[in-house]
Design a protein around this nucleic acid. Structure first.
Lengths: 225, 225
DNA sequence: AGTTTTTTCAAACAAGCGTTTTAATAAGTT
DNA sequence: AACTTATTAAAACGCTTGTTTGAAAAAACT
């Protein structure tokens, strides 16, 4: 009786779930080209043909994994955005508020997933640095709309700023965010041990401040001249 | 007579040079794993065995290419740094001056190389996002020293700021720079055509301002509390 | 229970990979 | 001109890749 309960709680997840998790881990480590069906199968303790059976192809497998990982983050972003707007109806959000809603959800997910071996930071970042064609298409589908949302929000905060300049600095902000995520793994090496990769909160706090101020001062300088 | 002169001026470069150039182009497009000896040979209009003959292995070929491309940038950085220090001996450099010396040389090289199909921005950025082991080692060799130089310079500007906080924000700055370079290719898509990828100068100017201000305000906020 | 559907498994497939070999050609030297 | 070295070329090597096959096992359903 007891053993069955233990067995039930410790029962390993479905093959499908294990494949997705292994894919996330290996993709974040080695990128799309560095991920092989055999390495996924091995890590998921599944048969080589399992991934093809469940997802059809390597492309579809990776796309499904990315969908499952990224969708919750984007949903949370919009949630935070709307939440802030409801608290001050009619008043445009501050730059800090806007970038908080953009960056904070990533920190949340990273903290959640530290128990698993997959670094979400690396995964999200790799989505943008991978050159594979199909990932570019997927990127377009996943992020095109949300980037427009943020541009609109920032335009509301700076109603007299030319849209082009908003775009320039939003682009820089997103690039900085992704760069920080991608580089986070190297933090300890880069700082000769002065900073700790595990302090995700510290990183997120500083990143939000860094980007917000970079954005504010940049807009001020380049839209007035 | 004339034909020989034309032939001489238009003579295609040595096989070795063509291989390096093709490697740079394909590496920046597809990364290390996505680059194949056959694709390099084809683009360089050389035989498949040529790369192995001239460089020994794929690893050595890519390393040599990176060395040739990155070394001049780092040299120029130190040159600008020393130049600025000579103009105001004894006085610490401003944050803008420091980051100008870090970022501007990349802009120079990008402008130079726009005639070739290789985007230097992508190449430099990929150096940092590629997970391949040997590239990590190479990165350590190429950038470990220069990152220390910049930390020292910034510490001189902020003598009372704890080194840890300098590291944090230098890390964010470098990450932002690399992120911007890596994302530069997507600029037009991201901004729905509002911004032009070709305007490298604009990007560099805004990047220097963005990072400098992010650094300054971040240091102010997080080292005083 | 028997039957159908879903899932696992080992083995094989063609294609592409980095590298090596061997021979032919070009360049340089005495 | 003869000889030595450096370079190019085509073909093959062993290995890994994503995907498919067909049979065995497990699960689900009537």
């Amino acid at each position: 009786m007891i053993s069955t309960i233990i067995k039930a709680t410790k029962a390993k997840p479905s093959t499908r779930k294990r494949l997705i998790e292994a894919t996330a881990h290996l993709f974040s480590l080695h990128g799309y080209n560095g991920l092989t069906m055999r390495s996924v199968a091995k890590e998921a303790k599944a048969n080589l043909a399992a991934a093809s059976y469940h997802f059809g192809s390597k492309d579809a497998l990776v796309l499904e994994m990315l969908h499952e990982r990224i969708q919750p983050i984007n949903a949370r972003r919009l949630e935070l955005l709307n939440q802030a707007k409801l608290q001050q109806p009619g008043i445009p959000l501050s730059v800090h508020q806007i970038f908080h809603s953009l960056i904070f959800p990533i920190g949340e997910e990273i903290s959640k997933s530290t128990k698993s071996r997959c670094s979400l930071a690396q995964l999200v970042a790799r989505t943008f640095t991978e050159p594979t064609d199909f990932i570019e298409r997927m990127h377009q589908r996943f992020f095109a709309q949300i980037s427009q949302t943020y541009h609109a929000e920032l335009s509301a905060t700076y109603p007299h700023c030319p849209p082009e300049e908003i775009y320039w600095h939003l682009h820089l902000s997103v690039a900085a965010m992704l760069g920080a995520l991608a580089q986070h793994r190297r933090l300890e090496d880069f700082t000769q041990g002065h900073c700790n990769e595990g302090e995700v909160e510290k990183m997120i706090d500083r990143l939000i401040e860094f980007i917000s101020e970079g954005f504010i001062r940049g807009i001020k300088k380049f839209s007035s001249s």
